[in-house]
Design a protein around this nucleic acid. Structure first.
Lengths: 193, 193, 193, 193
DNA sequence: TATGAATGAGTATTCATTCAT
DNA sequence: GATGAATGAATACTCATTCAT
C-alpha cells in the first residue's frame, strides 16, 4: 500500500531540504512552496507562519532523540558502549542534518530553537553521566576520573566530529566515521579504564 | 595616545560583530551602518558591496593564518607541540569567530568564501603531516602510525572542539580549553609514541 | 456593458502614459503603481521587471505594425497611395507615441528596443520599394527615379513630420497633418510621375 | 599658443558628450566628474547644480543661433536660398546634437529648456516668413502661397530630416544630407515659384 | 481545501548635494 | 581652488503574510 504523502509532509520535507542547503533566511516561503509543489498561500493554511515550520521540525527531532536514547542499552564494556554511543549519535546527526545545521547557523533567530537543539547534547550528557557513575562504582571506570568533565569531553569529541564532517564535506578533510571512532573514541575509552 | 578609529574600521568592526551574532543575511547594511554610527550610504563609499565586507574580513583572516603558522616552531616533543598547536588554533578561531561561523552558516552563499575558510585546516594539515613525518623518521612517532589519517584526526579534534565551544557558549556544555586539551589532546599525543 | 479593466491593463496604461510624459528613467515603479492605483509590489507580480513593461508595450506595437501594413492596399494612383501611407503612419505614431518617443529618448538603455522600433521604417521602406518598383514597371513612376533613395526620402518626410508634431506640440510650430500632407506629400508624389 | 582648457570647459564638454550619449537622467554627476577628470564636488563649485549645466549649454546654443541667423544673407533666388538655409541648420543641429536631443528627450524635466530649444525653429520661422514675404512682393514667390504655412512646412522638412538622421544613425535608413536636400528641398523650393 | 491576487515593510544600492579641510 | 568624506532621499525589487473566491 503506497503511503499517501500529506500536504503537511510535502511542505515539511521541502522545507527541511531547503533549510539544509540554504539556511533559514534564504529559504523563502516561495521556494518552499515551489519545492513542495503547492501554492504559497497553502503553506500558510497548514502552518501559522514560517517559524511554525521550524517548530514542527523540532518536535520530530525531539521525539527522535528519546527514541535514540531509549535504544541505547549498555553492555557493561566501556569501549563497546562508547563506540556504540558514537555510532548512534552520528546517525542521528546525519538524519537531522537540516535542523542540526540551523541550530548552529540560525539559532540567533530562534532562542527557543537553540534551547531545543541543545537538548541533544544535554540528554546525551545526562545519560553518559548516569552510566559512567555506575561504571565507576562497579570499578569499570577508574576512580580518579572526573565524570562531569569526561562526559562533556566525550560529547565534544563526537559532536565535533559530526559537525566537521558536515561542514567540510568533499574537501579531502573529512575523515571516515570508522577511522575517527577507531582512533579517537577507542583511545578515549581505553583511558577511562 | 588613543589611536583614531577610521571609518573603514568602524564599519568592519560593526559588520564583524553583527555577522557573528546574526549571520550574513540578517546583517543588513542598515544595521551595520547604525552599529558603526555612520550613514548607510557611507558604507557604500567605503566598500563597493556588502560582499566586499566579507572579502575584506577574509583578507585579514588569510594573512593571520600565515602568521599563526609561522608562529609554530616545533620543540621536538610531540605532546608539547601538539598542545601548542591546539592552543594556537583555538586562539585563531576565537579571534576570527565571525568569519569562521559564517564559513559554516552562510558558505552556500559564498562558494569562494568556503574555499578560503577551508584553507585553515588545509594548511594546518600540511604542516602537521610534514612535521609528523619528520618525527616518525626520528623515532619520536611510532612507525605504525598512519600520518595522513592521524593528522586529519587531530584537526577534527581541535577544530571540532573550537566549534562546539563557539556554538554552545553558555549552555553548560562548553568545556574549558584547558580541560579539553589536557584530556583529549594529551591522550592523542601520548598514543603516537 | 463596460469592460472590466484588468490590473495588467491598468498598469500598462499608467506606464505608457508616464513613459510618454517623463521618459523611462523618470517613470519610477512607485509612480506607475500610484497612477495605476495598485501597490508597488503588485506591479512586480504582474510584470517581472520594469523592463518587462517596455517589452509588453513593444509586443503590442509590433503586432500593430503588421496590422497597419496589411491595411494598406494600393489603388494604383501614386498620389492617392502615398497620401494614404502618410495618413496610416501618422495615426500609428500617434497611437504609439509613448513607445515611439522612448525609442528616441531612451534607446541607449534598450539596444534591443531600438532594433524593434526601427522596424517600423524598415517595414515601411520594404513595402514602398516593392510597390514603387511595380509602378515603375507599369509606367506610373518615371523611369529615372531612384527607388531606394526615393523611398527613404519619403519615409524621412512623413516620420520627420510625425516626430516634430509630437515634440513641438502646442508651440505654434506644429502644423496640421492636413496642411503638411497637402503640400509636401502631394508635391513629392507629383514629382515621381 | 595652446589654449588652456578651463575647468568650466572640461566639465561642460564632458557633460555635453555624456548628455548626447545617455540623456539627462542617466548622465550622473559622478560620470561627468570622471569624464572631466575632476572631483565630483568640484563640479558643484563651478556650477550651482546639475540643472545649471544645462542652462549653461543652452546659453551657448542661443548665442550660436543668432550667429547662424546673422550668417544667412539671401541671394534672391529661392532655390539657392532655401538650400542654403537647409545647410546652415543642418550644421547647427549637428553641432548642437547633445542639446537638441535632450530638447526632445528630456524637455519634460525642463519646461524652461523646452522654451529655449524651441527658439531655434521659432527664429528660423521668423526669418523665413520675413524673407518669403519680401519675395512674394517681388514676385519671386507665387502670390497664392500661404507664407505662414509654407514656412512651418519647410522647417518641419529640414528639422524632421535632421532628427531622423540622428535617431536612425547606422540603420541603413539614414539618407545623405545631399540626397535629401537635392530631392525634397529643391522640390519644395521649385513649387513656390 | 486550495489558490491567485494584493500588500506593507524591508533590502541593497545610487544619486545629487554639502561640509570640512 | 580643489578634494575626500559624509549624507538623506530615492530606486528597483523581494519577502512573509492576508484576503477573497
Amino acid at each position: 500500500m503506497a503511503q499517501k504523502i500529506t500536504t503537511d509532509e510535502k511542505i515539511l520535507n521541502a522545507f527541511s531540504k531547503l533549510l539544509e542547503e540554504n539556511g533559514y533566511t534564504e529559504t523563502t516561503t516561495k521556494k518552499i512552496a515551489q519545492a513542495a509543489g503547492v501554492n504559497e498561500s497553502t503553506l500558510f493554511r497548514h502552518f501559522k507562519d514560517k517559524e511554525q515550520l521550524v517548530k514542527e521540525l523540532v518536535q520530530k527531532y525531539m521525539s527522535d532523540i528519546d527514541t535514540v536514547n531509549a535504544g541505547f542499552i549498555p553492555s557493561g564494556d566501556i569501549v563497546t558502549d562508547l563506540m556504540r554511543v558514537a555510532d548512534l549519535y552520528n546517525h542521528f546527526v546525519e538524519a537531522h542534518k537540516a535542523l542540526f545545521l540551523i541550530g548552529m547557523r540560525d539559532s540567533f533567530q530562534f532562542p527557543k530553537l537553540k534551547e531545543m537543539i541543545i537538548q541533544l547534547p544535554m540528554k546525551l550528557k545526562k545519560i553518559l553521566v548516569f552510566w559512567m557513575t555506575e561504571m565507576k562504582h562497579s570499578g569499570e571506570i577508574n576512580g580518579l576520573v572526573n565524570i562531569e568533565i569526561t562526559a562533556t569531553n566525550y560529547i565534544t569529541l563526537i559532536l565535533g566530529h559530526a559537525l566537521i564532517q558536515n561542514i567540510y564535506t568533499d574537501t579531502g578533510l573529512d575523515i571516515s566515521q570508522v577511522d575517527f571512532v577507531q582512533k579517537n573514541v577507542r583511545d578515549f575509552a581505553e583511558h577511562l579504564k
